[in-house]
Design a protein around this nucleic acid. Sequence first.
DNA 1: CGGCGACGTGTCAACAATGACATGTCAGAA
DNA 2: TTCTGACATGTCATTGTTGACACGTCGCCG
Lengths: 176, 176
Amino acid sequence: MSLRHALLGLVAERPASGYDLLKTFETSLAHVWPATQSQVYGELGRLGDVGLLTVAAQGPRGRKEYTITDEGLAELRHWLLSTAPERPARSDMLLRVFFLGRVAADEAADYLARQGEAAAARLAGFEELSDSIDWGQDPLSVYGKVALEYGRRISAAQREWADWAAAQVRAGERGQ
Amino acid sequence: MSLRHALLGLVAERPASGYDLLKTFETSLAHVWPATQSQVYGELGRLGDVGLLTVAAQGPRGRKEYTITDEGLAELRHWLLSTAPERPARSDMLLRVFFLGRVAADEAADYLARQGEAAAARLAGFEELSDSIDWGQDPLSVYGKVALEYGRRISAAQREWADWAAAQVRAGERGQ
DNA sequence: CGGCGACGTGTCAACAATGACATGTCAGAA
DNA sequence: TTCTGACATGTCATTGTTGACACGTCGCCG
């Protein structure tokens, strides 16, 4: 149900069309809340229906520029300050770890080593992203940096864990 | 689509009924791949239809004990060794961070501090869990420990990040 | 002036996930 | 013996998510 709030938050920064928003979802927000085109347009329509957004201007090619309403701002603020129950995220990668006992120890260690490489690649990607953006003093920059730092730290922890786990498994293999 | 593999993996360890599996999903697997009752029973039925599982025994109260078939084992092994594209996970918490500029700096810092506390609580929970389990030498124990260590490290990183971020925001607040 | 690429909106079918509801059985304690 | 709690399986409506398809427009380059 948070796609709704993502759209509200984005439109609150500045009025935008579905097309504009889509580009944001493909780039910066993609790491945090991926969404497809059909989802975005669908949700924008619904948001308009319930009065959290309005079409403030029409542009060429049927462009609809959405603006946030007072109700929308209130809802956004409420969502930002409510503490969510935060259900545990699904992790395909960790699910596999659970069943790694079903394959040979060296295969398991390889799997873990590959996860380590993937985490290292993500980390490198974040570093690059961090360098390529010219950060301003605006709120979006400040909190964008905070979010990016999260990605960096988590990726680093994942890489270290994967390396540790691979070593652990190889040690167990020799131990038997 | 990985609920399917979670069930396959669990039944591969030992034959089980939907009810048995459900309890596993509520406890150990809950951190990694939460699933509801209706999902589990539904997927078990489908898994039986396509021949990856079979009902090997019936028990009291209509209990159906599922066993994995050779095709099921093959599918499980294939899934374990295939490197998944791993799409980015959604994070409600991080999405909020993106829009934290919309509330006052002290409210934002409070939000981050609360996330830090939540991460610390998760970390404590993992430590406790780790102590409460008597770990054996069986594969499930070995990899269970590896998965738990992941939770521990990630929670620790999250807590440190949240503390850092809260400090960052409070510093910026004073700076203005 | 023709065409191409970006702009722009939308629908649809299929599947996954959630939470609520419905139904019945068995074993053991009071 | 009755009742309670654990055992046990299922359905249903709603919502979220994905990926594919479909359609039309504007501006600019050759």
